[in-house]
Nucleic acid binder design. Structure first.
Lengths: 212, 212
DNA sequence: CCCTAAACCATATCAGTGCTATGTAATGTG
DNA sequence: CACATTACATAGCACTGATATGGTTTAGGG
């Protein structure tokens, strides 16, 4: 009946937007389409406006986060896996600080909440596995403990990747997660070893990008 | 030598900006001065531009936070006081969610970092007091533990006040802080009681503003 | 095969944004 | 009192996101 939208244009634009975010160029309607050959109107047919671009960018952020979490292999030690997920979460925020910011910037709409819930479920599942392995007490609520892990991960990621804390502060993740998992019933020494093992997923301090 | 600035204009404008933030009106150069009788140029003589307005707004946020933390009385139980500070921190974010957002929104400049450091020092001091009272092990680094408390407080405040988590999630603060302080050497039962006592500073769930 | 209806999209234009240049009025100091 | 210096009002700048309009392209039914 009519022409069909070319989905490649959509991915082209959000990819370009992501790169502009990384290079800290201001993303405006005109600067976004400049050089791509597409017209400003395309932004409206594909995204309904700049708001739609930002929303798509937020979804891209959650997609990238999910992909990063997916790289965390499942091992025989669920507590290690939990720490590894936390490390992967923080690492994703460190690698895409601006994208991470827009993810939690605007007021959450349902779409974003769903994406966030999905990553949370990933944590819940591993907590359940740890419970099954007898590492946590029977009375721990998996959703609750997963949420608490998320709070730690987000606090850390937010204050370091887009906030005032220097990068070496990230090692606090070990102490925080160890304290949390120990309070959930895990043996302190064993817990610390598991968390330290899982936290190795984090990149070395390397060239520090935080402030002194 | 010349006309002198009226400092009242400055406070008038940032107060108005704060209110516009609360009512979620977009803060633009013209809408900010509309109705105040002052001209758009006043924004430039007093703030140097809209960036200056946002910077002043951020400082206002830290000022308000410091004022809130100052209302936390010092008791004989430093662990309680620590939890009370955490609760006050979260409560401030809940009462001024948009202000809290702008505080950590833009890239941190030195001024903001100083303001943030000041609130952190408040925590460090109480941790030292707890160490002196024998509640924490001698080998805990006060700055480290204070930072970890901040990470928890910020994660909680950020995810609840300006994020996807519902308000009742705030009770997780008790478990998180108890886990942390216990791992620092405090007696588990005593710690829980202290934290629960201090956390009472938080307002009751009341009319929930989070999502279900 | 073609021809019509629908969708895509280029152009021009709009109101609104932050900001600045220019001229004027006010004021504290010498 | 005179004047240098500052505050400020006006008008205008380049830019923003958004839309109205109509031309162009494409898909699918006759």
């Amino acid at each position: 009946m009519a022409r069909t939208k070319d989905p490649a244009v959509r991915t082209l634009l959000i990819e370009r937007a992501g790169q502009m975010l990384r290079t800290r160029e201001p993303i405006t309607l005109r600067s976004l389409v400049a050089g791509t050959g597409v017209s400003t109107m395309a932004v409206y047919t594909y995204f309904g406006g700049m708001d739609g671009v930002w929303k798509a960018l937020r979804q891209e952020g959650f997609t990238r986060l999910a992909a990063r979490l997916a790289t965390v292999a499942t091992s025989a030690d669920p507590v290690r896996d939990l720490a590894a997920l936390g490390a992967a979460y923080v690492r994703n925020a460190l690698d895409n600080p601006d994208l991470y910011r827009v993810m939690f910037d605007a007021t959450f709409d349902l779409e974003d909440s769903d994406a966030a819930d999905e990553t949370l479920q990933r944590l819940v599942h591993v907590v359940e596995r740890a419970k099954g392995a007898g590492r946590f007490r029977a009375d721990v609520d998996p959703l609750e403990l997963a949420t608490q892990s998320w709070i730690i991960g987000h606090g850390l990621a937010s204050l370091v990747a887009t906030g005032p804390l220097p990068r070496q502060t990230l090692t606090n993740g070990i102490a925080l997660l160890t304290a949390l998992f120990t309070s959930a019933g895990d043996d302190p020494d064993r817990c610390r070893r598991s968390v330290e093992h899982g936290w190795k997923e984090l990149p070395p301090p390397g060239l520090s990008r935080g402030r002194a």
